[in-house]
Amino acid sequence: MESTERLSAPLVLEYPFTRTTGPVIGAFLTGLREKIVLGIKRHDGTVLVPPTEYDPETSETLTEMVEVAQQGEVTTWTWVQEPRPQSPWDSPHALAMIKLEGADTPMLHAVLADGPEELEVGMKVRIKWREVTEGHIKDIEGFIPIGENND
């Protein structure tokens, strides 16, 4: 070996485990693949979306899954002018918390609007699904405003 040659060895970063998403998150993700949205009933009767196996506040086990609507309202929003490289969106969009009809908690996702002037708290939006769904939160391409030009 030439003395000027730099020693090197390959380093492959990997995650050599298979994770399962369990009976609740798994059901939610499978629902997305089928283009439906599932929540879970908490002991006080309210519906948590997206669902978790345990109540995030009381830690009670939750089991009763319920389907919620595919439209709802924006509870808060911000505008992302320059999406980061890893982001599922490559053009400016709103990030928002959206409470679906039938749900009592809002979920984070994007609102696909042309500019921040189109956004307001309380506005109605509905899911736009990706053409090919695979059981992932990104099966929802985003939410689009329910209005004149959006059927």
């Binding site: 929003w77 918390m97 984070l108």
Partner: peptide, 21 residues
């Protein structure tokens, strides 16, 4: 890791959602 991280919201955006409320 299932519901939020795959959407890669940056910290300022999350703070902004809170600020607007």
């Amino acid at each position: 890791p299932y519901y939020v991280a795959p959407l890669w919201p940056d910290a300022h955006s999350v703070a902004a959602l809170q600020a607007r409320l």
